[in-house]
Design a binder for these strands. Structure first.
Length: 614
RNA sequence: GCGCCUGUAGCUCAGUGGAUAGAGCGUCUGCCUCCGGAGCAGAAGGCCGCAGGUUCGAAUCCUACCAGGCGCACCA
């Protein structure tokens, strides 16, 4: 890359200055030559703070003097750097021969789909676990942030040569009381569908869905049962499948004598658990796939119990001496690994805790040979991080391979008021139903990828829907479609894309063309930076910025000949190549974001009346 | 009380050691015989929460404080 070339030129210059005696730098001096993009073009194409950094080591008080010495020692036999200037406190500003931009355009068109991707695999095997929402409710709008982040982070790491697997952890363990309550709620709704009325916790009685002569007194809705409409949906689909086949057994679960055997009742309870879980997971999966998120593995917590892995993990912790018994429970000495207090692994009722299973789960991840584990958790789980890290360390695994990314809260607004709650309160804004179905996958993803995950954000679903055509994703997609349109028009007029030998590109001298070429050359570095910092939002910002430059180019640099024929054919050809290069970058970028790059956009009818009239 | 995160334009947010702090939305003023106006040009709008410190240089790093969010279970 260009910055590496420049860094090595500067490095040569420093070496040369040292051997001539003009600079003396202690051998143990540690410094990195950084090239950056100056804030203004008047400061050149690249600048370096090298002289400022070397001030201490050289003992020369004026950094500008150091900068001048370095500039004087730049190798003379190269064509890359056209001119240098020393500016400000001692910045070395480099003005380059534009040839490098033309070479870069050539490289973009050569590499096409692989422009911006790493050349070689790193050997790193990364497992990203994200969303992992409890199977007691749908994927909510709030989950959208982690879903988008995890998925794009996976793309970014893949682009840098890592091997990436995406995983969803399903908390389906049998000792999960939440899941039992959830299944019980479905059972109650099932009976309601069969015509039984329900006595709700607040004293109301909800009527049965159909008349049922057998229903006398209302069924008691489970305490802390789940109130969402989606529970009823599940019950309805169960009725569709089995009709009233489980009516008697289910009645008995609610203390009404259905004159059934205990075995039949147990079987029914197991059936409801299983089918409820299956439907919920399927619904979650559908929602995530509608969002463009596909997992390599849906990992069931219960499989750890089935395989004896939880037991084995606890045994390992025992052997390693990091447990003790107190008050009838088995504790992990997590304080020895930086946690604020010790944690219970096995409760006094002999059931394992969540952390015991999670320790087994993470051990399993390590055992599968991943070299880096990334967990994406919401801010409401950050208190959990220390004990997870402690458990991994206590098991003897390398804690530094486990990276826990905490996303800040997404709060919801509806009609300007905060929606508090989530599954337990029954107010769930669903990712698919309430957002994707209205504004589409692309706009929804872009929306979540606009900001850093470290910033708490507010999603106003109504606003997001109302303003969806103001979503910057359309600005970016429109720019891409425009490029495609120009290429299409060129084809219709029998103007072929020029050969990619680069010689013809030297006619690209308009400032807007040079700006654009420069931005295209920044792309691979931006991808790397976004991957290193786990910052997909850098890419969405880059996309918007690039789209803006494309519009400027479009306004100022006519590509195809006009009727007057005032664009020379050589210029048309070179500009077509630039359009092609820009198209490639924009398409690659949108692909990383999991957003489509359409080659045409549906016309937006600006005269249409808004949906909502108030 | 303790811990984590966040305070940047009216609003939503970029910018994590560099030069004059940026963008979108909103407000105001212009631009459609010409590759698609989901566009472009321009204007207004800032003690970067407050106070110290570190250094050539701080929105960025350190300390204290103020404000907001989230955690602090033998729940998951």
């Amino acid at each position: 890359m260009i910055t590496e070339q420049l860094a090595s030129l500067l490095s040569e210059a420093v070496t040369s200055a040292c051997s001539s005696g003009e600079l003396s730098i202690p051998a143990d001096t540690n410094y990195e030559i950084k090239l950056e993009t100056p804030p203004d073009k008047q400061f050149g194409d690249f600048s370096s703070n090298l002289a400022l950094v070397l001030k201490k080591a050289t003992g020369i008080k004026d950094s500008r003097v150091i900068a001048e010495i370095i500039c004087r020692h730049l190798p003379a036999d190269q064509t890359l750097v056209r001119n240098t200037e020393v500016a400000g406190p001692g910045f070395i500003n480099l003005f380059l021969n534009p040839e490098w931009l033309y070479n870069n355009l050539k490289s973009i068109r050569d590499r096409d789909l692989t422009y911006g991707l790493a050349d070689a695999p790193t050997g790193e095997r990364v497992l990203i676990e994200f969303v992992s929402a409890n199977p007691t409710g749908p994927i909510s709008v709030v989950n959208g942030r982690a879903a988008a982040l995890g998925d794009v982070l996976g793309n970014l790491l893949t682009s840098q040569g890592c091997e990436v697997a995406r995983e969803f952890y399903i908390n389906d363990a049998l000792n999960s009381s939440q899941l039992s309550v959830f299944a019980r709620t479905v059972e109650a709704r099932y009976l309601q569908q069969l015509g039984y009325s329900l006595a709700m916790p607040d004293g109301r009685v909800e009527a049965g869905a159909i008349p049922n002569s057998g229903a006398v007194s209302p069924i008691t809705f489970p305490e802390k049962g789940y109130p969402g409409e989606y529970v009823t949906d599940i019950a309805r689909s169960i009725v569709q499948e089995i009709g009233n086949a489980s009516e008697k057994q289910t009645l008995q679960l609610f203390g009404v004598d259905g004159s059934e055997t205990q075995a039949g009742v147990d079987e029914t309870e197991a059936y409801f658990r299983k089918i409820t879980l299956g439907k919920m997971i399927q619904a979650q999966r559908n929602a995530l796939e509608a969002f463009g998120v596909y997992y390599d593995c849906w990992f069931m917590e219960s499989s750890l119990y089935d395989a004896g892995a939880v037991e084995a993990t606890v045994a390992t912790l025992n052997e390693r001496g990091f447990t003790y018994t107190r008050d009838g429970a088995l504790w992990l000495k997590s304080t020895e690994f930086g946690d604020t207090e010790d944690r219970v692994l096995i409760r006094s009722n002999e059931k394992a805790t969540y952390i015991a299973a999670d320790a087994a789960y993470h051990a399993n991840k390590y055992q599968r040979g991943f070299t880096k584990l990334i967990d994406i958790l919401g801010a409401d789980h950050h208190g959990y991080v220390a004990r997870l890290q402690a458990s991994v360390a206590a098991l003897g695994y390398d804690r530094s391979q486990l990276e826990i990314v905490i996303t800040q809260m997404v709060s919801l607004l509806r009609d300007g008021e905060a929606v508090i709650g989530g599954k337990r309160k029954g107010i769930v804004l669903e990712l698919k139903e309430d957002l994707i179905d209205d504004i589409g996958k692309d706009a929804a993803r872009f929306y979540f990828l606009l900001n850093s995950y470290e910033t708490p954000s507010t999603v106003d679903v109504e606003l997001a829907r109302k303003q969806s055509n103001e979503n910057p994703v359309y600005y970016v997609q429109y720019a891409h479609a425009r490029l495609c349109n120009i290429l299409r028009k060129a084809g219709e007029n029998s103007i072929p894309l020029p050969p990619n030998n680069g010689d013809g590109y030297r006619v690209l001298t308009h400032p807007r063309e040079l700006d654009l070429l420069r931005r295209l050359s920044d792309y691979p570095g931006e991808v790397t930076l976004a991957a290193q910092r786990y910052a997909p939002h850098r890419l969405t910002r880059f996309a918007i910025d690039l789209a803006g430059m494309l519009n400027l180019f479009y306004e100022n640099c006519r590509v195809l000949p006009t009727r007057e024929g005032d664009v020379p054919i050589e210029l048309t050809m070179a500009r077509l190549a630039l359009v092609d290069g820009a198209r490639i970058v924009l398409r690659n970028l949108l692909t990383l974001l999991g957003v489509s790059a359409p080659d045409r956009m549906d016309r937006l009818d600006t005269n249409s009346v808004p949906d909502v009239e108030r």
